[in-house]
Computed example of a mutant assay.
Amino acid sequence: MTGHIRLRLTQPQVTQVWADRGYAGDLVDWARERLWLSLRIVSRPKGTTGFVVLPCRWKVERTIGWCMNARRNARDYERLPQHSEAHLNWALVTMMTRRLTRKSPRTDTWSRKPRATQG
């Protein structure tokens, strides 16, 4: 089964994907026609220099950072993509169960949106 059909069958709730400017163009049409996804291109604001927090992308990058805290996900040890996917899922399940069973709410640097730096 090809990857795009598998995505539709296993994750039907995914309806929108954010992507970098490098993915603009034909991929937007392909995602709409084949995956029935809305591919939103996130661009830097005009006239900015240096590091800028881009809308929506910081959530994805933060989550990837959390996944990389799991030692096995920090390197590409697996032979099959399904094994890597399983380890990513396991890392996210572990993270969420720890957060859900926490005795008191805690805010840390990872749970807040970072501030944009002035360039």
Rank of each mutant, 00 (worst) to 15 (best):
residue 100 L to T: 06
residue 86 A to M: 03
residue 59 K to V: 11
residue 74 A to N: 03
residue 30 W to G: 03
residue 64 I to N: 07
residue 65 G to V: 01
residue 82 Q to S: 15
residue 19 A to T: 01
residue 10 T to K: 14
residue 86 A to L: 02
residue 99 R to F: 13
residue 108 D to T: 13
residue 26 D to W: 11
residue 81 P to Y: 02
residue 66 W to S: 05
residue 50 G to A: 08
residue 4 H to Y: 14
residue 70 A to F: 12
residue 86 A to I: 00
residue 91 A to N: 02
residue 17 V to S: 02
residue 90 W to C: 04
residue 93 V to Y: 08
residue 70 A to V: 04
residue 77 Y to T: 00
residue 7 L to I: 07
residue 37 L to Y: 05
residue 30 W to N: 00
residue 79 R to G: 06
residue 70 A to T: 09
residue 1 M to L: 09
residue 42 V to W: 05
residue 79 R to W: 08
residue 70 A to E: 09
residue 89 N to C: 10
residue 99 R to N: 10
residue 65 G to E: 04
residue 23 Y to T: 00
residue 37 L to A: 01
residue 65 G to S: 05
residue 26 D to K: 06
residue 117 T to N: 12
residue 86 A to E: 05
residue 105 P to I: 11
residue 19 A to R: 03
residue 32 R to F: 05
residue 87 H to W: 15
residue 92 L to C: 03
residue 83 H to F: 14
residue 98 R to V: 07
residue 92 L to P: 00
residue 34 R to W: 09
residue 93 V to P: 05
residue 4 H to A: 08
residue 6 R to E: 15
residue 48 T to I: 03
residue 102 R to I: 12
residue 92 L to M: 13
residue 104 S to P: 07
residue 92 L to F: 03
residue 55 P to H: 08
residue 46 K to R: 07
residue 75 R to N: 06
residue 64 I to D: 02
residue 81 P to R: 01
residue 67 C to D: 00
